[in-house]
Write a protein that binds this DNA or RNA. Structure first.
Lengths: 277, 277
DNA sequence: TTATGTTGTACTCATCCTGAGATGAACTCA
DNA sequence: TGAGTTCATCTCAGGATGAGTACAACATAA
């Protein structure tokens, strides 16, 4: 049940006055992940003003509520996430890469006191992107960059280790930790690792995505067999890659994402044994 | 990044006026599931007033923002979920069953127009409860009841089949569908099925939980072997059940929930094959 | 050119997990 | 007493997995 049902609709609207209510702000924050140089990176912006001036934060901002006061259109939550991402990266929201990128809701963070100024409920989104250009600081940000997640010193409990230079504002260390754990899990039972690659990729490239997200090396032969045996994971293009920069070996074959939405059987990560309880 | 960082904190608070902003309301809705007579039930309340008067809805309501206008304490989101559940069931929130019940965030629903009155962002929670007494309609509800989910005619796309008598208000059919799918998945890789049982249970009782949630019969022998072989899923009490009502056979042994938080290896549901793409 | 090291792909093999069925003992009900 | 049901365990075949091996294709250095 959503708001107060004790008045009927027209009566409610006639009697409603926002001044009767304590204000709650709703924002979206985006955990945008990509692979650069074989390492997992997250998009961060640097805050120019208090609170948390100089610290880094996830890109995000207000959801446009829709109404007469600001004169904005009401905006759906995923649209707000893409808009905020576009404002920070300088990429176009609709036609470009951002429109085809994988985006899913991560969770909502609303503890009292998570923003020192006022009550803020933040809906976090998780995005998987292929390699994108360096962002241009825009909007409210003093700076914006793809940052290797290993450089943030995240602990399992959602904090940052003491001594980490890049500190995260608000509860964004927790949100990012949750996003990383979600990403690690998603790679197990969905084909979303292909969302980190471009339109075509080789099996070794796909393997390097898994290794970057999971943080451990995988057995090349078994990975190859597994990917090709799961129906709908990838489909062959018939071509071979001529990308340079490799240190030897035959030209790897090229593949496209398949049409499966779930991997069956799943690709379970080896380290899962230890973190069971 | 959360709100406007262009002013510092004290300046922001001095200049902040909620009348400058279009209002957004934040509610929590709860998908509370339990097993009754071997069938999966969800807690629903019947709306007494417009909009959607006479229709059924998930229990829920406003989050207390905290502030001078209503004079309420700021309330964390899970606390709001438990409070709303307590108001509908008549059970005590803190000490009783509701305090020990499994509760997790399901997702946030904020499409413009999902509430005809105003912009409402709803944070949905998912609860697994052991068998609870019939609820007493309280708070805003005209009626409250545990309803078999099969009687709601839910389709995979989150709608209700035409001809279903109990219609769900707002987008609650979608929220409930998402909650059911989450529950089905959770049973695969977590020991949360035990949250539907009381403190002690038999393997056949646990199996009936899986069968009710997954909607398919399981092989008794294989299920037994699997549950006992997964480390930390259940631990024996050494006792046997003397519960009546069974149609024959030896007295089953009693078990307690174990200390595992994840099932490894997982208990995969057989029907997963068909819904892969 | 040759030698060396690296990489992509394919194969083997022992082990584990799973699904399907069978068995026997314990219990209820007619 | 007999028939039917249920709990618990066992067997067996097939599939999936982890670890290792093999070899050709390629880059680079000697």
């Amino acid at each position: 049940m959503t708001p107060d049902p004790r008045r009927d609709e027209s009566e409610f609207l006639a009697n409603y006055d926002p001044r009767d209510y304590d204000p709650v702000s709703v924002t979206v924050d985006v955990v945008a992940l990509t692979i650069r140089d074989g390492a997992l990176h997250v998009l961060l912006v640097r805050r120019g003003n208090a609170p948390y001036a100089g610290m880094w934060a996830l890109p995000g901002g207000f959801v446009q509520a829709g109404g007469p006061l600001q004169g904005t259109e009401a905006e759906d939550l995923p649209d707000a996430a893409v808009r905020e991402l576009a404002e920070e990266t300088g990429l176009s929201a609709k036609g470009g890469v951002l429109g085809r990128m994988h985006l899913e809701q991560l969770g909502t963070y609303g503890s009292p006191g998570r923003d020192p100024r006022m009550r803020v409920i933040s809906v976090a989104y998780l995005a998987f992107a292929p390699e994108l250009p360096d962002p241009e600081a825009g909007g409210d940000a003093a700076d914006a960059a793809w940052v290797p997640v290993d450089a943030l010193g995240l602990t399992e409990s959602g904090d940052q280790r003491p001594g980490t230079t890049r500190r995260l504002a608000f509860d964004h260390a927790r949100i990012l930790s949750d996003g990383l754990e979600r990403a690690r899990g998603k790679l197990e039972y969905t084909p979303l690792a292909t969302a980190f690659c471009g339109g075509e990729f080789t099996i070794p490239e796909l393997r390097s995505v898994y290794e970057a997200v999971w943080g451990e090396e995988l057995h090349a032969g078994n990975f190859h067999r597994k990917v090709l045996s799961v129906p709908g994971f990838v489909e062959s293009t018939g071509e071979t890659s001529d990308r340079g920069g490799r240190r030897g070996g035959p030209k790897p074959r090229l593949y496209r994402p398949g049409d499966a939405r779930l991997l069956h059987p799943a690709l379970l990560r080896p380290s899962r044994e230890e973190e069971i309880r």
